[in-house]
Design a binder for these strands. Structure first.
Ligand SMILES: [Mn+2]
Ligand SMILES: [Mn+2]
Ligand SMILES: [Mn+2]
Ligand SMILES: [Mn+2]
Lengths: 163, 163
DNA sequence: CTTAAAGTGTAGCCGTTGCTACATGTTGGT
DNA sequence: ACCAACATGTAGCAACGGCTACACTTTAAG
């Protein structure tokens, strides 16, 4: 390697910590925030599946893996694998060739997720986002909105804790 | 197995597609939305790394892998592996034991991400979300806000295309 | 009833993002 | 100059979420 260490000669004089710009949050606080965002990501997929299955059940009485896959834009194999994760986590049930259904926990989650989805879309529209964009962005945003923020959204929209 | 097929006897009469509730979006549109949310997820991590590295460089002149790891709340091995992905994608450079730096592309991305982050926080606060919650939620939300929505946010906040 | 189409399930692959454990390099204190 | 502490890098593991390919079952057409 012949390490020509002296390469660092010119730049080592001014190692001034600028300290000028904006403050950075504490390490602990920042790590906690990033951790929350990561864990939200891990549940986002489950939430989308449960909400979609609930919609399909409500609209046509059944939720077949292929329909779920087509709506999500993934292969049926992927959908089936994720549905088996839903079952593992107690959110859904399914018997071979008989479609997917939601457990009580799954139904409750779907309800919460559906309300949250609508609230997020409504808030985006209320601040001026075009409806199509609002609907598209909400699909990702919804999974990262805390209950605290949801309450604020409701207040802003002039709804008293319902809807 | 002895498949007693007649088990489906009682329930097969009313296979009415309710069709009553809310309309569902078209399969294609919905799949497209979910796909966008998925791809946003895949860049979210890169965005957070780049923004954080930029912050560290601005605040102290250097961004060491261990600092990045502590701020993100992950192990240093994880941080190093992701940093190597940043390098692979042309966003960062680093020489062993010498810290991480951003390429021009990385710097540009960091700038965009920082502005977007601030805009999202400001909008959340403007609609009544407490600052701490706004900051925490923004960390996840930011990665799913389209340029269209950002423009609407700016307009809502009364800022003409800057900041 | 027979057969083709559609749906379902399984297996095996890959890339990403975590982790722990261990090995190696750098640096500061004495 | 030395050694201990710290930082960095590497290896190997696991879970997740994609995919394609193939096998099987159910449903629909004729
Ligand atoms: Mn969603
Ligand atoms: Mn949704
Ligand atoms: Mn973020
Ligand atoms: Mn951010």
């Amino acid at each position: 390697m012949t390490k020509t260490k002296d390469a660092t000669s010119a730049s080592e004089a001014s190692e001034s910590p600028p300290t000028s710009g904006a403050e950075m949050p504490s390490e602990a606080a920042q790590a906690h925030r990033f951790g929350k965002a990561r864990s939200a990501q891990s549940t986002a997929l489950l939430e989308d599946y449960v909400e979609l299955i609930s919609d399909l059940l409500g609209a046509s009485g059944e939720a077949r893996p292929t329909d779920v896959a087509r709506r999500l834009g993934v292969s049926h194999a992927t959908a089936i694998k994720t549905i088996s994760r839903l079952k593992r986590e107690g959110l859904a049930t399914s018997r071979p060739y008989r479609g997917v259904f939601l457990t009580e926990a799954g139904t409750a989650l779907a309800e919460r997720v559906r309300l949250r989805h609508r609230l997020v879309v409504d808030l985006l529209v209320a601040v001026g986002v075009p409806p199509d964009s609002a609907e598209a962005d909400a699909e990702g945003i919804e999974h990262h909105v805390s209950d605290t923020a949801l309450a604020a959204f409701r207040a802003f929209l002039g709804r008293g804790e319902n809807s």
